[in-house]
Structure formats: C-alpha cells, structure tokens
Design a binder for these strands. Structure first.
Length: 424
RNA sequence: GGAGAGGUGGGAGAGUGGCUUAAUCCAAUAGUUUGCUAAACUGUCGUACGGGUUAUUCUGUACCGGGGGUUCGAAUCCCCCCCUCUCCGCCA
C-alpha cells in the first residue's frame, strides 16, 4: 500500500510511474485518494476541535459539582450533550472516509522503480543476462513427467488418490532429491548470512493483509474457515509478518531471514495443457529469502539477493536467464522484480524458478514496519524477498537436462546431500 | 474440551469513575562528577492521525488485549470476542 502523503505530495511522479504498468483508472484512483484524504483530514479537524471542547467542559462539570454549583453544571451538561451528537455525526463521516480511503489505496499497485521498463506483459520483460548452455539430449530424451514414471520417483496418481490433482507423492530417490535440495538451499543461505526460520505454514487474516495477499488474492489461498486461517502460498507471508508492528533499531538491520516451507496455491483458473507434470502444483516446496533494510540500501540488496539465487543455479549447472520484469508483468506489491528462469531441455521451455523483488515501503506501510534511527526519527523500512529456490521446476530441469541413456545424473554439489549420483 | 485466574508503556509493576498519558523501579539514552571502570546525580525516554511554525518547536485528538455500551466524564463499571497462565481431560 502506497503512503497517502506520498500520493498527496507527489501525485505527478506516482502517476508517471504507474503508467509503466498500463493500469486502467490509475489517475482516477489516485485522485480519489487525494479527494477522500482531504475529506478525512478536514473532518478530523472538526472532530478533534469538538472533542477538545467537550473534554474541557467535562472537566469543568467535575469542578462545578465539587464546589456545589449543580445548576451551572447542569447547563454545561446540555451543551456537552449537543456537542456529542455533532461528534457522533462527524465520526460517521470520518469512518466512511477512512474506509473509502483504505479501499482506494488497496487498489493502487506499487510504483515501479526508475529502471523498470514500461510494458503490458511478459513480452516486454527485459532479458538482462543469460548463463550456461542448453544440453543436447540423446534421441530418446523424454519430458520429466515421463521420466518420473520411468524411474518411479514421483507419483501423481497416488497424490490424486489421497488428496487431489496437483499434490504429488515423492518416493524413494525422488523424496531424497527433495530433501537434498532443501538442505542445499538452506546451507547456502546460511553461508550468505541468513538466519534460518521455521514458521507456521498457516497464517491469520492480519498476516495476509500485512504482506498484501489480502484483500485481493484470497481466491489463491486455501482457507481453513473453521479457524480463520490461510495456508501460506509462500514463506514470505509468515517470515515477513514476523515484523508486523515492529520498530527496529539501526543495529538490528539489515534483517536477513531464510526459511523452508511447503507452499499452497489453489491456482484457480490457471490450469491447462502447458502445466503438465511439475510445472504447476497446488503444493510445492520452496526456500525463501527475506530481507529488511533501510531505504538507501534496498536496491543494492536486490542485486545481492539476485546474485545469490544465480549462484545457486550455477552450482546446480542449470542454464538460466535473468529477466527484469516490465511494469505490467510485475506483481502488485513490487517496485522492481527480477525473474530467474531455467531452461528445461526436453520441454524446450523456460521455467520460472525464482522471483526476487524489492517492495520498498509498500509492504512496510501495511505492516507498520519501521526503523527508529539514532536521531530518534521513525521511518518505514524496505522489504525484499526472493525464492532460493522453488523446487519442482528445478527438479523438472535437472531430470530433463541431465538425462542420459543410463539414467539421470545428479549435479555434483547435490551428491553429498543425496548420497547417490544417478537416478536409474 | 471443562474449571479458575489474568491481559496496563521496552521490561517489572501501581492504579476501582474526574487530581492519570498513566505513580514507582529497571532497562535505554544524553550530560555532570571521575585518572579509568564502577557508582552517584541531573535531564530525556511511546505510537498514530491532524493543525500552526518549520532549523527548531508549539499544539489538538486517539490509544491501558480487540470491539461495543453506560456516563457530562472510563485503564477503572457493563456486554461480546481474542489471547495468556494454572489445574483437569485428551493427545503427537
């Protein structure tokens, strides 16, 4: 959520930035915010004034009662009662304005950073870096959904039987490969200075609002109505919400957290022929990085985090490309996002395996996540996060790219974790 | 799940209708004292939303788990909800 005063004081700049998202109604929304905010402030002034008056009057009544001048107190009481009525009316207006303001603010996405290109969708993303070479596969090479059957390491039918489509069962070396990847990613994050967190995988409503999944994307989360809990779509939600309503001092910054969690996504309406096998699931595993830092450090942090993710892909010997997302393809909350995509050789497709974003103050504003510096000044912090990494598509790419007639070769860095070097 | 107790500022802990934004202690922080450390002393020490001035600062309102109510006036009384603790039950 953008800050009201930023919209109020930098209207043109905000609109200019939002243009890169090709957002319909941007100007209308922004102006509604400004308008509603004006009403809100004016009403509050009136309310405050009346309250101040009735507060002093109430004190006077107390004094008059004590000194036995009951009749004078009586007439003051009438005056206060009249003020109270007016206050009640104005408070209705105020509440309305605050509610509307909130609604408008929820609809405005983050302003893209300067570097972010304008664009409507995926075609306008900038390919800023490519690494590695696509392997040439042998004649009988197969996509991963065939390989997992051939080697009996991941079973969709069994998952379907006990849960439903999109909930695979990992078996034998398939399960061990999952565990190996998770441990490898966590160890690498730890080496890079991140603190490991194991959060709940359900969150309450307030947390959903804190990181911006709510109010818009409730349809994407599994909801446990009986207890009012949401299954997390990413560890970003619980790990960032750890800092909801928190004021951090300078020496607590930057915050660098990592965590492995399963992630749950309903993916309503996004199923189709192109999402076979591991390409899209309802439940998958992911290691996430979260950083919280001062405004002046956040863009350097974004680069450092992205480099960390790239180094993981390089260690796994996977060919990848790095995209700087255009305004229209970026997430609602993000000011700048790099996507990392690996090339899965049998499908001949790029698969997104990580998305690293700087949210600037967009999340912090909702979270009320602030820094109080040595001068005693309180200001919003910047939040960032990135997948490092999401497992299923990494597994898909490893299976497809590393397949040989003898079996699937495990990347060298993983062998100490898997304790086997071939799936056959 | 049942019974009881309780939720006050960074922490501890007073406060049962106006003198309380909230005593006191601790922590933190700035300064004085001091050869250094420690101690002592003095000051500062919440957040949000407004308003006037903007270097500073002055000022209003709200906030004592959350929401509602009673009252001229609520941390204090009433109702609902949430949470924590203790005991019992169940259980990985």
């Amino acid at each position: 959520m953008l800050q009201v005063n930023v919209i109020r004081e930098q209207r043109e700049k905000v609109l200019e930035g939002l243009k890169k998202r090709y957002l319909k109604d941007a100007e209308e929304l922004v102006d509604k915010v400004i308008e509603t905010d004006k009403v809100r402030r004016e009403t509050q002034q009136q309310v405050d004034l009346l309250k101040a008056k009735s507060n002093t009057d109430s004190k006077k009544i107390g004094e008059l009662m004590k000194s036995g001048r009951a009749d004078e107190a009586q007439s003051l009481r009438a005056a206060v009662a009249a003020d109270k009525d007016q206050i009640k009316n104005l408070e209705g207006t105020l509440e309305e304005a605050e509610k509307n303001l909130q609604q408008f603010l929820y609809k405005i996405p983050n302003v893209p950073a300067e570097k972010v290109p304008a664009g409507r969708g995926a075609d306008d993303n900038l390919n800023v870096y490519e690494h590695g070479t696509v392997p040439t596969l042998h004649a009988d090479a197969q996509p991963h959904w065939e390989l997992i059957k051939k080697y009996d390491i991941i079973d969709f039918d069994l998952g379907n039987k006990i849960a439903g489509a999109g909930f695979p069962v990992y078996k034998g070396k398939g399960a061990k490969l999952q565990r190996a990847l998770i441990n490898f990613f966590l160890d690498e994050a730890e080496k890079a200075g991140y603190k490991e967190i194991q959060p709940p995988i359900v969150v309450n409503e307030a947390s959903g609002y804190g990181t911006g999944q709510l109010p818009d994307k409730e349809g994407q989360m599994y909801f446990i109505g009986e207890d009012g809990l949401y299954m997390i779509p990413t560890a970003e939600v619980p790990i960032t919400n750890l800092y909801r309503d928190v004021i951090l001092s300078d020496d607590e910054l930057p915050v660098k957290n990592t965590g492995y969690t399963p992630c749950f996504r309903r993916e309503a309406g996004s199923w189709g022929a192109h999402v076979r096998g591991l390409n899209r699931l309802h439940q998958f595993d992911k290691v996430e990085l979260v950083q919280i830092c001062k405004a002046e450090d956040s863009y350097e942090t974004l680069e450092v985090m992205t480099n960390h993710v790239q180094s993981l892909l390089e260690k796994l010997e996977l060919p990848y490309r790095k995209l700087l997302l255009c305004g229209g393809d970026m997430g609602f909350n993000s000011a700048m996002t790099y996507d990392l995509e690996v090339f899965s050789a049998a499908q001949q497709r790029w698969l997104e395996v990580s998305s690293v974003s700087n949210f600037e103050t967009f999340q912090a504003n909702r979270l009320k996540l602030r820094n109080k510096n040595k001068e005693g000044k309180t200001q919003l912090l910047h939040t960032l996060n990135g997948s490092a990494l999401a497992l299923p598509r990494i597994v898909a790419a490893i299976l497809e790219n590393n397949q040989t007639p003898e079996g699937v070769r495990i990347p060298k860095v993983l062998v100490p974790y898997t304790r086997f070097d071939l799936i056959s």
